[in-house]
Design a protein around this nucleic acid. Structure first.
Lengths: 229, 229
DNA sequence: GTCTATACTGAGATAGAC
DNA sequence: GTCTATCTCAGTATAGAC
């Protein structure tokens, strides 16, 4: 589910909880529209006019809720990472403490993919636009991005310490490779072909076991199986 | 509107080979500038003014060489895929016919990464901009992209047929995953940290052998490979 | 809070001189 | 081939009425 009204906006002195401030709702609808357009068309092709149309306002009205287009975009981008981060963390927190690291990684992959591909447009808006977004819009995002990266780094380190990842493996590369591959999935994902869970399963197997033949290879094609999970 | 100036520019009746047509050269410099800017700033932040400045012309002069901005961009994008495709194909063609498929994949990975990260801006301009580029600019690129995708598909299929990839592996996912991860490398690659060859080696190991603990894995049975573990 | 009206800017593009 | 000059339009943003 989404991050609900809470997150960073509940503050203040809710003077009318019953009717819920319409202002907040409109603000939210503008953000949603922006996430939608950023995801579908990209920053270059997203004008305030587009957003206003989507929400049913005039462009000038947007300025009541946001001081500038940049501020609006920045907020969408921030929510994007915030949401994946939270989704992944929550998924891992929900696991049994006894869960293997392999299982943890699998769940993390599934959660990241799900956040990116199924749960609204914020995350994918961020992932897709960030690489080419102007400097000034990127800055505020860097800190939380680093945190999320660290979270994965830690997960993989723990897995290696626990002996579930070979000791000589370069975790840094694994992380960049894995996260990169997942982030690129917005370009090819098709829910009618394969479910996210199925994809996460397969990616996890690929990463841990590799795609090479699972057999001993006495240089002549012997056939002793090395069973491993 | 467009009508390509000829496959790769040699067409027509070279009236002066000695001095080499300056027009062609200028045209090329404009394309180079566009690739550079697309790669660094993205389509949204690349104006004809920027390109003209880069080349040392007035914006109006660009229209002598290209009928429109779109046409110019389309050509850069096209060259982008054309170049990777050719780089990868050439690298594989240069291999001994006896080369293992694992080696072929390794070489293909290295070639793709090299084309993307080292060899000029065209390829990375394409990869980075394509996802969010407007529909009309994308169309002309789809066909060659599909061809390139098929090339990888074929490579992996052959590898599987030859028994170097486990029979139950979903090649489609492997391809999307692998190519996606490589394409995302523009976001993190740092030549001072790791060479492309080293990265290609590690990715290849990761993909074929996995990162899980190796109980007793003979890995490459008789391959001529640099020991790297 | 949202509207209408409008200022201001920068972009792509064309015409015609040289 | 490249220039100067100019057109047109879309985009962000502001002012002030309601």
């Amino acid at each position: 589910m989404r991050s609900k009204e809470g997150g960073t906006t509940t503050s203040k002195q809710d003077k009318r909880v019953g009717k819920i401030r319409r202002s907040e709702q409109t603000r939210r609808r503008i953000l949603d529209a922006a996430a939608l357009w950023l995801n579908k068309k990209g920053l270059a092709e997203t004008s305030l006019q587009d957003l206003a149309d989507e929400v049913g306002l005039q462009t000038a009205s947007l300025y009541y809720h946001f001081p500038s287009k940049d501020a609006l975009i920045e907020e969408v981008l921030h929510k994007g990472i915030e949401i994946v981060y939270e989704d992944v963390r929550r998924a891992l927190d929900a696991l049994e403490p006894s869960a293997s690291y392999r299982e943890r990684v699998r769940v993390a992959i599934a959660a990241h993919l799900s956040s990116l591909l199924e749960h609204g447009d914020y995350t994918s808006a961020n992932i897709r636009n960030f690489p080419l977004v102007p400097e000034n819009l990127r800055e505020k995002n860097l800190s939380i991005r680093r945190q999320y990266g660290d979270y994965w780094r830690q997960l993989l380190q723990d897995a290696q310490k626990a002996g579930e990842v070979a000791p000589n493996v370069d975790l840094s590369l694994v992380r960049l490779f894995l996260v990169g591959a997942m982030n690129w999935s917005t370009e090819w994902f098709n829910p009618r072909k394969k479910s996210i869970d199925a994809i996460a399963d397969m990616i996890c197997s690929m990463i841990f076991d590799g795609i090479g033949p699972k057999e001993q290879r006495p240089s002549d094609g012997g056939q002793k199986r090395v069973t491993r999970r």
